[in-house]
Design a protein around this nucleic acid. Structure first.
Lengths: 172, 172
DNA sequence: GGGTACATGTAATCAGTTACATGATTTA
DNA sequence: TAAATCATGTAACTGATTACATGTACCC
């Protein structure tokens, strides 16, 4: 029962399977318009990771007979347990942000006001685009928890749209 | 001049050296109370990465004679150029967030209100702690750009403190 | 002068990413 | 039936992380 060698992506996979995803492609589809927005990874991991989890006994792997003969995954009791325990453990782990824009701002003492302004506008655009996506998703969401996550996304994007907009204004 | 094989951490190192850091430990010190908050990485990278950059001709490496005989790095003209060009290129890249709390919320349809509340409080605590750090840093900051970055951090943390607090309240 | 914290690195591993390759299904 | 597009993977690489190991300076 080695439970601590699981990565966040492991739990994403377990969670997606628990929510009814069965094949890697299915997970990819579901993830790409939900959890993928706040924990991104390439689709190849959705082929590698389930295999690992199957080896650990947390997923069961079956092979389709006809057609594409793709691998179909289901949660084992051990997998369900691992997921539940992880979910129930409140994390105080610090969220990480990886923001190239802030990085450039931090090191950009030598930038001209125009260059800084261009950076700020590009970032504002990026956040606006993401905001639009979240607003669209917000309408389609069914569960209370998913709605809450989308809300977090909306608040976050609005915060940064404002931040960059103000920055562009004050440095003009 | 292979410029695209540089990672964000490469630029962090170049930026730190440009800001006057000379040894790996020095970079570690400076990063740990600034850029490390929004782009975290283990200190071992601050030994490996400068070596790579030196091989690429972007840093010059010298060895101290006496004492610890540590490696002292300085920017080469090519390094300065690479950094400047990167800084001047406005990024529209989407910032990534990696938030375990949101992950648990997303997959936590089966959590009881009490468990959800515990998660929310733990997350609120974590964000409050980080907020306190930023407030302290805010006073010590000298440059306008650094002040702006700290401001982004403050806004971000306040957003999430509020988010989790409200969540705990509405699900009670 | 012994202990403790600070400082400097290395080695090994692995998760994550990129790139490639091909099969199945739909559509025009 | 040809051509897109959707779908399913694999292989290779490497950046990032973990863990270890040791040296130096300080302080009690």
């Amino acid at each position: 029962m080695p439970d601590n060698q699981l990565t966040p992506v492991s739990y994403v996979v377990l969670g997606l399977v628990a929510q009814g995803a069965t094949t890697s492609y299915d997970m990819k589809q579901k993830a790409s318009r939900s959890v993928g927005y706040f924990w991104n990874f390439p689709h190849s991991q959705l082929y590698a990771e389930p295999e690992r989890l199957a080896k650990l006994g947390l997923l069961e792997e079956e092979r389709e007979e006809g057609g594409r003969r793709r691998r179909v995954y289901t949660l084992t009791p051990a997998g369900r347990k691992a997921l539940d325990e992880w979910l129930r453990e409140p994390t105080s782990e610090q969220p990480q942000i990886r923001d190239t824009g802030l990085l450039k701002l931090f090191f950009g003492a030598g930038l001209t006001p125009a260059e800084l302004s261009a950076l700020a506008r590009a970032q504002e655009e990026a956040h606006l685009a993401r905001l639009a996506v979240y607003e669209e998703i917000a309408d389609a969401v069914t569960s209370a928890n998913h709605a809450a996550v989308v809300r977090a996304g909306l608040l976050h994007e609005r915060t940064f749209v404002d931040f960059w907009r103000e920055l562009a204004a004050t440095r003009r």
